[in-house]
Design a protein around this nucleic acid. Sequence first.
DNA 1: TAAGGCGTGATTGGATACATTCACAAGACC
DNA 2: GGTCTTGTGAATGTATCCAATCACGCCTTA
Lengths: 226, 226
Amino acid sequence: MTTTQPADAPTTDTGPASDRIVDGLRRQILTGARAPGTRILQEDLAREFNASRLPVRDALRRLEGEGLVRLVANTGAWVESLSVHECTEAYLIRERLEPLLLSLSAPHLDDAVVDRLADLATRMQGADLETFLRLDREFHLLSYSGGAAPSIEEIVRRLWNSTQPYRRAYAVLVGVADSPATHAEHTLLVEALRRRDPQDAAHVLELHIRRTRVELARHPDVFDTD
Amino acid sequence: MTTTQPADAPTTDTGPASDRIVDGLRRQILTGARAPGTRILQEDLAREFNASRLPVRDALRRLEGEGLVRLVANTGAWVESLSVHECTEAYLIRERLEPLLLSLSAPHLDDAVVDRLADLATRMQGADLETFLRLDREFHLLSYSGGAAPSIEEIVRRLWNSTQPYRRAYAVLVGVADSPATHAEHTLLVEALRRRDPQDAAHVLELHIRRTRVELARHPDVFDTD
DNA sequence: TAAGGCGTGATTGGATACATTCACAAGACC
DNA sequence: GGTCTTGTGAATGTATCCAATCACGCCTTA
């Protein structure tokens, strides 16, 4: 049987070829340089990255898998544009998976990471919205970096990526960023991690995400229906 | 701005082109015709489906996104082979997401679907392992077909697909298939759906999945470490 | 004899050129 | 005047060919 396994361990991918395009386009989408709903032309991308349309297609397929691009056969590619419902779903999933992920990751976080988390939590307070969102993302994803559950971590990362470009939600999130509850929860979370209490940390996180989800659900008007 | 949305609703994909390869290869992996860990040669696939290597590459990229294929740059493609840990993770995720998905789907299931579920639950009893696994999959995925949470449904479907090819777990699952508890839980689930009690159905389902997960965790030896 | 380097072959990655499909719009018919 | 039809154009899908890369086996050497 042709079961020759790759060299040693077939770790993720680490493609040295057209990954330049994947990374670049992902960055453009996450930073908002390409807004949700805008069309992506293969030829434009090819020119932009000095490549042919072939690696571009590979890149689009991969980003489709990540939920950042929507491909329609024989028609074209668009930057993924979540509906209100899909955004709600994302938060429902996060509410279930992230506490689990944190409880699995927590035992593997050393003191240096916890210190870094504490620092991030402090710097978030009083920051402007853009800074808050950047630090908040770094804070939570760092807390999941224990490496105990890579599959869950990947799903969670995709959910963060999917919802991040939706600047329309900023009108609501600015309230979340200013809320004392948000920063209190971050503090509680760090302290639970310092106490090596994964269950408590997970519980705080569940409340944290639920509160944000409910806040978003209260203002469905921030989403246009175009 | 070039924001021209696709025709009407950019529903999923419905690609009329090389999707033949995606469907065919997915089927081969799910049915076990291609075992986990075996290599996939682009040229072989191209010959098999009477196409060039180019649509084959697209297909592999897409199935990589579905978690059924592992691509290593400049090296090749393999049928995804889950580790013990990844399999455990999959069940942990299912334990959290499927009850949620069921509680959202349940209100949208009409009587005909519930009848079909009851029929499937009955036919599962005393069936051989292959039949049980097929009916069990159909049973659970049908119970999620309310269409209330397509994003969650897609994640769950991928998890089912990822774990399905792992015939090594069959030694354990045969015990699950024979267990009276399994069929009792299926019955309870159908009755909860008939009563229109999504919360109860979700609760039963959570116990159902947890029991299977624990059973698998008790026999880590069914997984080789090659 | 065992370990390291090198060459060969096979396989994947990419570029160009052509075929196919779809969207949009202008025109004809009712 | 509205609706259906049809034609044009642009963008995607595919095939073939060439280049780059990696795995495997052989040879050399300590």
